[in-house]
Every structure is written in C-alpha cells, then in structure tokens.
C-alpha cells in the first residue's frame, strides 16, 4: 500500500497490521533512547496547508524516532502565497527527493490528488471535512490498548458530526473493527445523508450515556456559531456537553476521549477533565506510536524493492 488516504482504503487487515506494528513502536517509545534506525536515509516532508500543532508535531516526532529526515513546509511562508499551484508545490518538494509526504489541506480530496501526482508515499493528515485516518487509528489503538474488545463495543460520538473529518474516519474505523457506533448531535450538526454512515443516530446524550463504553467528544468549532447551527455555546453545553451530572450516568468502566484541542466548558466541563476515565493524554502519546507504525509500513512497502 503506497499511501494512507482513508480508513476504507486500509480495510480490517490494514488496521490490524498497523495496531500490531504500533505495539512494537510503543516499546521503542518507552526506551531511554526512543529511537531506531528503521527509516534511516529516508526523507519525510510535512506539507501543512492548514494550521495544526498536534498532528504536525506528532508526525514529526514519529519520523524522527524512526531516524528519518524531516523536511518542513508550511503554506503560510511558502510560494503558495505567490500563487504557486498545489501540483507545482508538490512536484518541487518531490524533486528534492522525498520518500513520504504528509499532507494536510482544507480541501477534501487534496491528499488523494497529491498521491496521484507523487511517486512518494502520501499520508493524509486531515483533508477538509473528509478524513483524518491517523486520528482514527490512534483512537482505535487507545481503546485496544485498554484491553477493550471492539466486537459489540458501544461507542458514542458526540458533537459536530457534519463538519468533522475526525468523526467520519472514526466511524469507518470503529465500525470496521466491529463496534456499534452511535452519533449524538442536534439535527443541525448531522450531515445530510447520515443514514449512509455505519452508525445509528440519537439526539439525546442522556439517553445514550448509560449504555456507552467509549464516549468520544468532538471539538465544537466556534466558527459554526456564525452559521447559527446551535442557539449558543451555553445551550450546546447544557444539551450535549459532558457535565459532572452526566459523567455520573456514564459507566465506571467507560473511556472518555477527545481529539483535542478541548474547549473547556463547551464539550466538557472543567470538573470532568480530570476524571479518571479521560484518556486524552494517552491519545496524544499513542498518536506518536501509531504514526511511527504508519510511516514504517507505508514507506517500507513503497521502497523500490532494493536495499533500504
């Protein structure tokens, strides 16, 4: 598999292989010197046409732990501002001799377009409202790492499903692994053809909570307020936020997850952030581990058959 663009491309075999490889990467990450020469001599370019701190630093840390060289490109300080096209930018970067390109772009489908132009492996680090496969993989790994069996696991994804690439990739990943996914949101924050997704829908968080094994809260993006999709953030918090009262309705064994950055007081009350069921920092740590696995497998399987 040359590229990682969506969870659907991976299928269950691909997800499982990444999980198994990530176990070995977790051991590497736990060493006093967390670095192995697996991708020595390989160059990984990170091309972020949209702002990101955690995904970008996570990928860079992962590449460095595998001894790859990292070439940094940010759209704000590049010739994109001079009107250079995406294709020209990609071809310029590739001409410098890169083995993998990590792409984040505000347009859905941009990474797939880049993958068609480039011989290097392309990893989707988030495109528009479309997909964010490494986020879904690190979330699946975090749940698996807790010893949970996906078969029949009840996962509730709460929030702005409509504009969320995280939601879309996570629905694909969790349902592929055998979990029951429930989307919890007001009708205004659900996508038009929600019935086409492998998930059931509820408009009441309170109804769903007692049966939930994994509560996955999405970031409520402030910019949505301008579009009047929810009456107010306070109103959203009252209906769909994880308050201390709601946290009590959630089973003691449940996990609380969030892709970050968290809006305290909107998706989650400040009092609940320190709840022992919250796995947000595990998600961040596992992000590096899982991205190491992805880079290793994708770049390894795209090497031209000769010596690495």
């Amino acid at each position: 598999m040359k590229d990682l663009l969506t969870i659907a491309d991976l299928g269950k075999d691909g997800i499982d292989e990444i999980m198994v490889t990530a176990d070995a990467m977790a051991e590497v990450s736990a060493r006093p010197i967390p670095k192995v020469p697996a991708l020595r001599g390989k160059t990984v370019a990170s091309m972020f046409f949209e702002d990101s701190t955690r995904t970008r630093t996570s990928f860079e840390t992962a590449a460095k732990r595998l001894s790859a060289d990292v070439l940094n490109f940010s759209a704000s300080s590049s010739s994109v501002n001079k009107g250079e096209s995406l294709r020209d930018t990609v071809e310029t970067i590739e001409a410098m001799g890169v083995d993998a390109i990590i792409v984040r772009h505000r347009s859905s489908g941009a990474p797939r377009q880049v993958a068609q132009w480039a011989k290097a492996s392309v990893l989707n680090a988030g495109d528009g409202w479309h997909a964010h496969p490494t986020q879904a993989l690190l979330d699946a790994y975090t749940i698996r790492d807790e010893g949970r069996d996906f078969d029949g696991l009840n996962v509730a994804i709460v929030g702005d499903i409509s504009h969320s690439r995280v939601a879309r990739s996570n629905i694909e990943a969790f349902s592929t692994l055998g979990a029951n996914v429930t989307l919890v949101a007001p009708p205004t924050l659900l996508p038009p053809h929600v019935e086409a997704l492998e998930a059931s829908v509820s408009h009441s968080l309170d109804a769903v909570l007692p049966e939930t094994d994994v509560l996955y809260l999405l970031r409520m993006q402030h910019e949505r307020m301008d579009q009047a999709l929810v009456p107010s953030l306070h109103e959203y918090h009252r209906s769909f936020g994880l308050t201390p009262d709601r946290a009590k309705q959630l089973p003691a064994s449940a996990l609380i997850m969030h892709p970050g950055p968290m809006n305290r007081g909107i998706e989650i009350s400040p009092e609940v952030i320190d709840d022992s069921r919250v796995r947000v920092l595990n998600q961040v740590a596992n992000g590096v581990t899982v991205r190491m696995a992805v880079l290793y497998l994708v770049v390894g399987s795209n090497s031209g058959g000769g010596a690495l």
Binding site: V28, L66, G300, S301, S303, G305, G306, A307, L308
Partner: peptide, 11 residues
Amino acid sequence: SFYRDDISTSP
C-alpha cells in the same frame, strides 16, 4: 525489524 538493511524484501 527496525535495524534491518532491507525491510522491503521481507515485510
């Protein structure tokens, strides 16, 4: 695996 000089020949 992470120390091989030829990961591509034997995945």
